[in-house]
Write a protein that binds this DNA or RNA. Sequence first.
DNA 1: ATCCCGTGTGGGAACGATGTCACAGTCCTG
DNA 2: CAGGACTGTGACATCGTTCCCACACGGGAT
Lengths: 346, 346
Amino acid sequence: MTVERRPSPSRSRRPTIKDVAEAAGVSRSTVSRALTGRGYAASDVRERVLRAAAELGYVPDVMARTLKQQVSRSVGVLVSDLRNPFYAELAAGASREARERGYTMVLADTSLSAEAESEAAEALVALRVAGVVVTPNSSAVSTYLSAHGIPVVEVDRQFAAGSTDGVVVGNRVGARTATSHLVELGHRRIALFIDETDWTTGYERYQGYLEALAAGGIKVEPELVVSSGWDVADSRRRALDMLRGPDRPTAVFAANNVLAEGVWRAIGELGLRAPGDISLVAFDDAPWMSMVSPTVSAVSQNTYGLGATAVRRLSERIEMPEADSVTTVLNVRLISRESTAPPPEI
Amino acid sequence: MTVERRPSPSRSRRPTIKDVAEAAGVSRSTVSRALTGRGYAASDVRERVLRAAAELGYVPDVMARTLKQQVSRSVGVLVSDLRNPFYAELAAGASREARERGYTMVLADTSLSAEAESEAAEALVALRVAGVVVTPNSSAVSTYLSAHGIPVVEVDRQFAAGSTDGVVVGNRVGARTATSHLVELGHRRIALFIDETDWTTGYERYQGYLEALAAGGIKVEPELVVSSGWDVADSRRRALDMLRGPDRPTAVFAANNVLAEGVWRAIGELGLRAPGDISLVAFDDAPWMSMVSPTVSAVSQNTYGLGATAVRRLSERIEMPEADSVTTVLNVRLISRESTAPPPEI
DNA sequence: ATCCCGTGTGGGAACGATGTCACAGTCCTG
DNA sequence: CAGGACTGTGACATCGTTCCCACACGGGAT
């Protein structure tokens, strides 16, 4: 590590508030007041300071400011997987809202790994972020951050409801609506594809499914509830097994866009036709669902709004740390497309 | 704004290095040496310090450290639009690489707005980031950041080639390959849909198209080159106009995934069939292209790798600020699917 | 015995910005 | 014209960390 770092003349040193003060012929305090607008500064002095700052290309050092003020203007955003359009959209919404509120966004992709998640959490503590929005994989992050006095908003799913704020969608209602839609069309054998039922998302979607069946007077058949892995390949394999079986369902409710893709591929590969042979409805509308043939009916959630709302909530929490925690539920809506129709005649 | 902020006992104050020093019965200097590993520290003392730090839940303050060291361990990533899977994937790649190299990632979505872009750039300067990866909209950002002595890597497209590093894909080769593919199938009337030809991406894809036509001895017909807007709606409208016209092309090369979607929708709406009536090939493979019927041939670029490579390049640049700037070109490959076939008989 | 060196530790000055406090004017009112 | 109110400015301590320097101790070479 013996890199010779001669101070090149062009970028000798970043101008500091002291340089601005000298250029404007005032003290550092006066520059601070003139630039931040807190405290007195005569208008001609302010003018002079602003001009000097602009000429020098002065940009205040966030590090120094934060160190002094003990509170930064940045928020952390922890998402599971940016390659999944769901999380990307959520991050996009968070980004816009953060920018509008004058926060910079520190984003980490935790890749569903608990290790990456706690690493990221520690980095955020070190950065003294003002707050964190997270799509949690466990209660660990919320607990850890809260212990350090950092406000947290859980988004999409909740592990620490009651102690921290949350922003989620109407999972139960959405799942019930989707399943009821199938029931009303006359389906009695309705399969559920779901990746987990431990998180609030999976649990509530499962409950919604059960409620709709109960309301329709339909008995739950355990072999129609498939606990799939989290990826397309696994979902596809499970769907192939089920749809090749002797007594296949007449409809499938897939609890997220990934599972829906697996089921959709399986249907195509088996030469089945939707909705003639089998109906399909998904939770979480993805772009491809409106492009394929037949188009896929889906419960659409406002993912962008989910991210934006979470940051808004976080910023309110930062301003009122002692207020009671709140869970915000965004509504979802069923978009009925071509993949759902009455079951085939026997 | 008169929120009473009584110092709650639980999170009275974040532990500082001084607290650790007192708990371990040594000086601040010694704690610093023990924790960072720079300088001498007897093994029993180090042991004691580590234990004290763990017990107190001590996390070093990045702000203070950066202030002292004048260089941070975070990088800025500026992308145009996280809702576009292209940028999301790019950000995901950047995120992984950043994490692996011990950098935290500050991400901003510049929404194609010049104002947001320069705002974000200023925020990054203020944060004293070690470097920035950007999908630029003009040369302004690179110039501005370079003037502040911050290393920049332009990714996907370049505005400051020569003075800053770049990571791009083989746009010209990819476009030529895609167009040649159509020529070899026997097409003579090949339309190009493109959003702009001012950026390096658009310009080179356009050049690749021209080269392939020239190589095939085909005269360029200006009315077949469509300068579309940047969104699906506009592309769709332009495609409807063209395909309804009297002398429609037998094939279309769409220069990105958004334009391809517009063209694809238009084809469907007009009741045309691909590849029977018209062939379609796209630059930039998107998930839907392998799901629709017919599947769409596309030039696939390693978007995730683009982001990862850019951060790797940036980190090398940070370590060797004086080295010559480099442009890295990632290869692309044509994935031939169902949407391309010989033109219809006359 | 003196000197020097290697090892280990503590003291204290930065880093850049903020904001309190004190002070120096100026203007108005009794 | 004295006293207070108000405006405008500068000096200085502070935030948490790093790192240069000084120093202390012991052992080996001179």
